[in-house]
C-alpha cells in the first residue's frame, strides 16, 4: 500500500505479455498488455489489472444494491440502480402478495429499497428482487452516492473502514455495490458519517487513508461514540 502507485491512461502499454497476464481493465494486444481504462496499475504475482478511478456501476447477479423506484407499472416496478440500464422488478419478486395493478400500494416512485440483482443476461437485461433475507424497503435516514468504484475502499478490508466510522458515529450504514449508501441515525450523526464517507471517496486512491479518516473523525468527535460512556482504560 505504501509504494507509489502508477497511474495509467487508457491505451498505455503496461508491459510485455510474456511477463504479465492481463486481468481487469486491460487487454493483451499483440505481445503487449494495454490499459483499457484510466486508473491505477496493480501488479501482483504476474497478473496485472487497472483499478479504475471512476466509472459506472456494472450490475452482477448477487450484488446487493440500494435502488430507487422510478416507476410503478401494473405488473412491475422500474428500479433505478445507477446502472446504465433500468432494472425492472416483477411483482413476483416482491415479498408481498401484490394484485395486478396494485403496485402503487406497496412501492411508489421515490421509495428506496435494499434489493439484490437477480440476473443480468447477455443483452444486459437486469432484474432485481426483494425476496431474500435482509432485503427490504428502506425508511428514514439519508442516501448518498459515491462513485461505484470506491465501494471497496469505503467498506474496507473485512469492513474495517465501516467499523472505523462506527467507532465515532452512532449510525446504521449500508453500502450498496452500486455506490449508493444508506445511513440511518440522528441527523448530526448522519452528517458526520457522510463527511467521512466523502473523504474516503475523494481520497480512496491515496496512501494513508485509514489514518486520515481516523484523524478526521477524531477531530470531529474526540473519543468516538463511547467517549461519554467509558473512561479511558489505557
Amino acid at each position: 500500500m505504501s509504494q507509489k502507485r502508477e497511474l495509467v491512461i487508457a491505451g498505455d502499454a503496461i508491459g510485455p505479455a510474456s511477463e504479465w497476464k492481463a486481468t481487469t481493465g486491460c487487454k493483451q494486444v499483440g505481445d503487449v498488455v494495454v490499459a483499457l481504462q484510466s486508473g491505477l496499475l496493480a501488479k501482483y504475482n504476474g497478473k496485472v489489472s487497472v483499478i479504475p478511478l471512476n466509472g459506472s456501476y456494472e450490475p452482477r447477479a448477487g450484488d446487493t444494491v440500494v435502488g430507487i423506484v422510478s416507476e410503478a407499472n401494473p405488473g412491475n416496478w422500474i428500479i433505478d440502480i445507477r446502472a446504465p440500464w433500468d432494472a425492472p422488478m416483477h411483482v413476483s419478486e416482491a415479498p408481498w402478495r401484490v394484485d395486478f395493478g396494485e403496485t402503487m400500494a406497496y412501492l411508489r416512485p421515490g421509495d428506496a429499497i435494499l434489493c439484490k440483482i437477480l440476473f443480468v443476461d447477455g443483452q444486459k437485461k437486469v432484474q432485481v428482487t426483494l425476496k431474500d433475507r435482509n432485503l427490504t424497503k428502506l425508511e428514514g435516514g439519508e442516501l448518498m452516492e459515491v462513485p461505484p468504484v470506491k465501494v471497496a475502499r469505503i467498506i474496507g478490508k473485512n469492513g474495517s473502514m465501516l467499523n472505523l466510522i462506527k467507532e465515532y458515529v452512532e449510525c446504521w450504514l449500508f453500502v450498496g455495490q452500486n455506490g449508493r449508501i444508506w445511513i440511518n441515525g440522528e441527523p448530526d450523526e448522519v452528517l458526520l458519517a457522510k463527511r467521512a464517507i466523502r473523504l474516503i471517496a475523494d481520497e480512496a486512491h491515496l496512501p494513508g487513508l485509514t489514518d486520515r479518516v481516523r484523524a478526521f473523525l477524531e477531530a470531529s468527535k474526540p473519543g468516538g461514540v463511547d467517549a461519554d460512556l467509558f473512561t479511558e482504560e489505557e
Binding site: I155, G156, K166, W172, F174, Q177, V225, D226
Partner: peptide, 19 residues
C-alpha cells in the same frame, strides 16, 4: 498522526459485504 480511538463493537443491522 492519529490518536487511536476506542474499538467498539459495531451495532449493525445489515452487515456490509466486502467487495
Amino acid at each position: 498522526a492519529p490518536r487511536r480511538g476506542k474499538q467498539q463493537e459495531a451495532k449493525e443491522v445489515v452487515e456490509a459485504e466486502v467487495a
